[in-house]
């Protein structure tokens, strides 16, 4: 019963949103505003159940019910977080800088080692590892061509974004090769994005025709 009501509701909301393809209309505006409210509500529930309850409420509760006094330390981040509300009082608005500074400091501190590890060392490793395999005779000519192309693409793309020297002569030529790789990369990203959206469209049409109308 509830599943049937759910399918009808989902189908009507789907049609309301698709009605925007004709033009802006009350049905679309209805679904659009409902979507904003429901999404914000869902975000609040997730934040409470996956953030505040396990990391703030539970340690405090355990501190008082099971005498795990270490949990009381969670009062500090709660007080720091509450400083966000200083924004609502213009005279004390500057206090909001404290939680922002802590969040930005933690984010920056975490970014340095993690970005270095995942986005620099691993990417360089991935680019150069095939050359060790070439040396060991493990790759066929087509894979060797791919490895050389990869190195050329990475160096030329980086050269394109290197603005400390004028892009003339050898640097200009290499940066032009970089543009070629970038265009292929952007084209691939575009193609993948389009196909991702088309997959969603197919899924919605499949829902309407199969689950709702039972036509297929």
């Amino acid at each position: 019963m509830w599943e049937l009501i759910g399918i009808w509701l989902a189908a009507l909301l789907t049609l309301c949103i698709f009605s925007f393809l004709y033009r802006d209309n009350p049905f679309y505006r209805f679904a659009e505003h409902l979507f904003v409210g429901v999404s914000v509500g869902y975000g609040i529930v997730l934040t409470v159940h996956q953030g505040l309850i396990p990391f703030a409420w539970n340690p405090l509760r355990d501190a008082f019910t099971q005498q795990q006094w270490i949990g009381l330390v969670k009062i500090i981040p709660i007080c720091i977080g509450a400083l966000f509300f200083a924004r609502l009082f213009p005279a004390h608005g500057w206090l909001i800088r404290y939680p922002i500074a802590i969040l930005i400091g933690v984010g920056s501190g975490l970014a340095i080692p993690n970005v270095m590890r995942a986005d620099i060392f691993e990417q360089v490793l991935g680019t150069l590892t095939p050359f060790a395999q070439i040396h060991a005779g493990e790759l066929d000519p087509f894979q060797i061509f791919g490895a050389i192309l990869m190195l050329l693409g990475v160096i030329s793309t980086l050269t394109y974004f290197f603005f400390s020297v004028e892009h003339r002569g050898v640097v200009g030529g290499v940066s032009k090769i970089g543009i070629v790789f970038l265009m292929i990369g952007f084209g691939s990203a575009f193609g993948n994005t389009v196909m991702g959206r088309v997959s969603l469209l197919i899924q919605r049409v499949d829902f309407l025709l199969a689950d709702w109308l039972h036509l297929i």
Binding site: T47, V48, G51, L52, F55, A56, K74, I76, P77, I78, I80, G81, A82, L83, F84, F85, P99, I102, L103, V106, G107
Partner: peptide, 8 residues
């Protein structure tokens, strides 16, 4: 701590 501060 950041997971507690962030939701605010």
């Amino acid at each position: 701590w950041t997971l507690v501060i962030g939701p605010f």
